[in-house]
Amino acid sequence: MVAYLIRRLFFFVPIVFGVMLLTFVLFFVVQSPDAMARRVLGPKATPKAVENWLHNRGYDKPLLLNRTGQAPWHDSLFLNQMGRLARFDLGKSDVTNRPLAEDFREGALPSLLLTVPAFFVGLALSVVFALYLVFIRNGVVDLAASLACVALMSVPVMVYIIAGQFLVAQVLNYFPAFGFQLEGFSTAKFLLLPVALMVVSGLGADVRLFRAMFIEEMGQDYIRTARAKGVSSALVLLRHVFKNGLINLITLVVASLPFLIMGSVVLENFFGIPGLGNKLFSAIQAPDFAVVQASVFLGSLLYLGGLLLTDICYAWADPRIRLQ
């Protein structure tokens, strides 16, 4: 198992390299560092200011290899960046010049406060609804619910937010529809609405997916065996279908677990939650390419971490799987 995981990790190295190459080409080759400086500093920046800005960030170095002879060959933009990231140094913001690691550490908690409850509440609700729909499958309620799921999926997340804020603020005049303060327990009142909206916006797709997964399980031979033993339909569902479906479900869901730390761009921005999603939003508006590049790096690591986690969970949950 350990050997397997280590081999997987080695397999990830070229992928992370590919991702870094991709963003590098995008930010520094497709767009020249010069153009980047002008976009960050604005159209009125003097050539001197641009030059300074580039120099301070090392963006004025040769792209791939340093062949000027005045510096070692590896003192190039790309290799410096790769070296930095290999040491997990995320670099500094293009705009504020603050170390990004600090920024990200700050944003992680608010993001997690939003996404973790939303994730687990959403998961639990979806599984319960999906199981219930499988129980009453092909009935009128099931059909109506399937339609409702498609309808829920067809609404963009902003519309949920705008409608939700509007209802809560204007019509119900209830808990704060906007704003965020980290102050112990009372933070919850700021999170109630965004968490609810995140749950609702994902519900349709999840219920549908899980329902399909459980229905697929219902058609298996061992379900027929269970019924032939005299197991009641409720128990067939809760024991036989659920456990098998759960294995598929875990492997599907676990992959997205690491991403919770990245927060939600749209939701955090709407509600002024100072998480990673919101930082990314500001970086897009600024524009701050360093933040975006570091986020991509982090995101790909999280993705690969998710894959690894999936493998481990699979081996743990499914007796048929042995990692070798």
């Binding site: 930010f27 897009i284 390419f289 975006v292 991509v296």
Partner: peptide, 21 residues
């Protein structure tokens, strides 16, 4: 390898990066 690499970048980040440039 190509699609693992593209898939490794969260979609929204990929879109944003490309469109920013």
């Amino acid at each position: 390898y190509f699609y693992s690499t593209v898939a490794a970048v969260p979609e929204i980040l990929m879109l944003v990066s490309i469109l920013m440039v």
